[in-house]
Design a protein around this nucleic acid. Structure first.
Length: 507
DNA sequence: AGTGCCGGGAC
DNA sequence: GTCCCGGCACT
């Protein structure tokens, strides 16, 4: 009950009033009191408090020094309002009598309902601020009240405010840039404008990077380079999928409402060691640039030919580069992420995009000619994390692989022309249903196994089935079970009875 | 869910 | 060797 009461009192704690505490608890915390009865004077006095760096307030130097310097020189007259320290608290009172000889002041404390004598130096005129500053002299009763509180509650400065604004801005920019993404390209008329709005951000190359560190890149769109894909000690696949499964969840400021998220570890931040670069996918080019504008320009000027401005061109230009995450130092998790068992089937394109692990393709596979690119040479220990950032790119990857498996040829047998052909074929937007179908057929089920190189590099959705080649294809012919039915099981052939391959109705 | 049948165990 | 069945792949 008492606690409730105190809580209520605490809640009611008067803004603008000064509170004080017994010296045992005070710890020098509290100070000047604003007493309702003396509001006029004290209000003025407290208005002179000077805010300090730490948020507290102290009386202005002149007042306190005045009170501290000559406390005993004053002549107090009867009826004067004064402040005294009584029982460790500062109380307002009325001077009843001041004896200059003994330097004693008889003060009436209306609030306490008592009357007592104080030394004149302990009595301060109410109009003046109590001597709160730590006087150089001996310890006085007023020294208990050393630090002051401001007349309003001291709220710690929200540094996050700016962060919030930045996050919102970045989020807005990401959304804007998504709207510029080639997948959802706007008509050419509006495109140039939106492009102009996006590119400066993209140009920096780091903008989406840094901005996503707090938004954790839940944008499932193509241009997202901030998916929490970098190998995470806590198991990145889980994290990324989890992050994707709740795209609306922002681990920023609304997590309070979700108790489940309170137990989440600290916001996942992109590791600094992962760099996002843009790599030209043009056969036997493989130029890597840091900015998206640069890579677009490169593709346009070097491969597609300059001047062309058609919609098709733009789409192609988008197709021929991809974002590449270059990891500076490989971690064991990184290696683990490339193991087939860690990959799960990309059922829909969003999953595939948000789980780039499922589509991990090492550089030489996509373009063998790039194996000798400058970057891969300069960073032998790094791995390329190619993210199919456009639907048709993903489509390209998904489509080429089964075809390749069907042909039973290695990638290395594909000439650049063939690759380019397929690339240009696939540059047309790829329906999701297609992806769905194709992603199922990604496993290499042909009797002639693909080349070891391909097998080892193309990490596809489902782990390769070992027994697939050995199992007999189910025949179309009728079997005993179908012919006779389960009720005439005795008429089945022995094999059928034994759940073996039917020997009566052979294919 | 139904079907075909492989792999393997029990006898 | 015969019989049976769990379990997987496929429809």
């Amino acid at each position: 009950m008492a606690s409730v009461l105190s809580r209520r009192l605490g809640k009611r704690s008067l803004l603008g009033t000064r509170v004080s505490a017994p010296s045992a608890l005070a710890d020098g915390v509290l100070v000047a009191t604003q007493i309702p009865g003396l509001q006029t004077d004290l209000g003025r006095a407290s208005a002179h408090t000077v805010p300090r760096e730490d948020g507290s307030c102290t009386p202005s130097a002149e007042e306190s020094s005045q009170a501290a310097r000559c406390p005993g020189r004053r002549q107090l007259h009867a009826g004067q309002q004064v402040l005294v320290t009584y029982n460790g608290q500062e109380c307002a009172g009325l001077v009843e009598q001041h004896n200059p000889l003994s330097d004693k002041v008889k003060v009436l404390l209306p609030e306490q309902g008592l009357q007592a004598c104080w030394r004149a130096q302990d009595v301060r005129p109410a109009a003046l601020q109590p001597p709160v500053l730590p006087a150089a002299g001996g310890p006085g009763p007023a020294e208990v009240l050393q630090r002051s509180v401001s007349s309003n509650i001291d709220v710690p400065k929200r540094k996050a405010d700016t962060a919030v604004e930045m996050d919102e801005m970045v989020a807005a920019m990401v959304l804007t840039s998504l709207s510029c993404s080639p997948v959802v390209q706007s008509p050419p008329a509006g495109e140039s404008a939106s492009r102009a709005a996006c590119d400066p951000w993209k140009e920096s190359g780091d903008v989406s990077d840094s901005g996503s560190s707090t938004t954790s890149g839940h944008w499932s769109g193509g241009s997202d380079i901030s998916t929490p894909s970098p190998p995470h000690p806590a198991g990145s696949p889980k994290y990324s999928s989890e992050a994707l499964s709740s795209p609306q969840v922002d681990d920023g400021f609304e997590t309070d409402s979700d108790p489940f998220l309170l137990d989440e570890p600290a916001p996942r931040k992109r590791k600094n060691s992962v760099k996002v670069m843009y790599k030209c996918l043009w056969p036997s080019c493989g130029k890597v640039l840091r900015s998206i504008v640069g890579i677009k320009r490169h593709v346009k000027t070097q491969h597609l030919g300059d001047g062309a401005d058609s919609d098709q061109r733009k789409r192609e230009e988008d197709f021929y580069y991809t974002e590449v995450q270059v990891k500076e130092e490989p971690t064991p998790e990184a290696a683990a992420a490339t193991s087939p068992t860690s990959a799960s089937a990309p059922i829909i394109i969003q999953q595939a995009l948000a789980k780039p692990e499922a589509l991990l393709v090492e550089q030489p596979v996509l373009e063998p000619a790039l194996a000798s690119s400058a970057l891969s040479q300069s960073a032998p220990s790094s791995f390329w994390h190619i993210q199919a950032d456009h639907a048709y790119q993903l489509c390209w990857i998904l489509h080429v692989s089964p075809l390749h498996a069907r042909l039973g040829t290695g990638w290395e047998t594909w000439g650049p022309t063939a690759v380019a052909l397929w690339a240009s074929w696939a540059s047309s937007p790829c329906p999701r249903s297609y992806l769905r179908v194709r992603s199922r057929s990604l496993s290499f089920s042909e009797p002639q196994p693909p080349t070891p190189m391909l097998k080892s590099h193309l990490i596809v959705a489902s782990p390769p089935r070992v027994s697939i080649g050995t199992r007999k294809v189910r025949g179309e012919a009728k079997k005993c079970r179908k012919v006779y039915g389960i009720e005439h099981r005795d008429q089945w052939c022995t094999a059928c009875r034994w759940k073996k391959a039917c020997q009566r109705f052979l294919d």
